Amino acid sequence: MCISARGLVKRFGNVVALNGVSFDVQCGDAVALLGPNGAGKSTTLRILAGLLRPDSGSAQVCGFDVQRQPREAKACLGFLPEDAVPFLNLTVRENLEYMAVLRGLGDSVVDEVMDLLELRDLARRMASSLSRGNRQRLAIAMAIMHKPKVLLLDEPLNYLDIPTQEKVIALLKELNSKGTTMLVSTHIMSIAERLTRRVIVINKGTVVWQGEINELRKIAADTGERIEEVVARLMR
């Protein structure tokens, strides 16, 4: 397994954000963590990324325990947090060059990822001056530039216009086709359908269903519901 969560529990004061979350993601798979706002999706991704310590439970990425082997786990993943903010006092290119240095990469990788996300025209712009959509493109570039084995993506299409969404979807699907494992957090079923093959439905900090998207389509066909209605019913 490239991603494994076992009994994750996380509390913020009196609020239980996660209540025993467990799931696996096989290497090369593309899986959606699907649920409403406040379901625990971002908390789960932050724990997997090693940015948040669970109160109990464990998480592994690429076979490495996130808490006990953080360097090894982080080396094999790319993480796009929700509302990602690049270094605002650097230009677009400087942000990417800094990330390349941290990852031990050369300038050719910076040029490559700038082309992929169409950032060349913004190369000398300060990140602080970018629109939210352009900041999102930059953050995606920073997350994927080292060709990670595992990608954790929290609402990756946030703030992107429709043409850019289409390009990012195509880019992410191409990365997945080449072996990158993806776990995508979203509250929108149509995004899950376009980017992934399997869903983990989470609500109120608990996994309520997980399986292939085709299984959800079959349930919808059998019951005469829309797939979104099936998911909503599962979360009740």
Rank of each mutant, 00 (worst) to 15 (best):
L138I: 10
A39W: 11
P156G: 06
T43S: 14
L96Y: 03
L175N: 01
V61N: 03
L18A: 05
A123V: 02
S185C: 15
M235S: 07
V207Y: 12
D111V: 01
R71V: 15
V21Y: 11
L216T: 06
C62Q: 02
S185I: 07
V110S: 01
F79V: 07
L175S: 00
C62I: 00
G13L: 07
E118S: 12
L116P: 00
S128A: 15
E118Q: 12
E212H: 09
I200K: 02
A141N: 03
V184D: 04
L160C: 04
R6H: 12
S4K: 13
I219G: 00
A141P: 09
M182P: 02
K10A: 10
G63R: 04
C62D: 13
I219H: 03
M145P: 07
V92I: 08
G50H: 09
L152S: 04
E215V: 04
A30Q: 11
L96D: 02
V25P: 09
P156F: 10
N89M: 10
A75Q: 14
P86F: 03
V184L: 09
V113Y: 01
F79M: 07
D121G: 08
P36M: 08
C62H: 06
A192T: 06
A143Q: 01
I47P: 05
G104D: 03
F12K: 00
R53W: 12
M145L: 15
A232N: 13
G224T: 10
V201N: 05
T164N: 07
D107H: 08
E112R: 02
I144M: 11
A170M: 06
L45H: 07
P54F: 07
K167Q: 15
T44F: 12
R11H: 15
K178P: 00
V199W: 09
Y98R: 00
R125Y: 12
V21C: 10
Q210T: 10
G28K: 04
V184S: 04
I144F: 04
K10T: 06
Q67T: 05
V109Q: 00
P163I: 10
I188D: 10
S190H: 13
I3C: 06
I200L: 11
M145Q: 02
G104Q: 01
A59D: 09
S108M: 01
E82F: 08
T91I: 09
L51P: 02
K149F: 05
Q69W: 06
V92W: 02
S42E: 11
S56A: 15
P86N: 03
T223G: 02
V168N: 03
M182D: 05
N89V: 01
Y159T: 13
M182E: 11
V168T: 06
S190R: 15
E166T: 07
N19Y: 05
R194M: 14
L117V: 01
M1P: 11
K10R: 15
R217D: 10
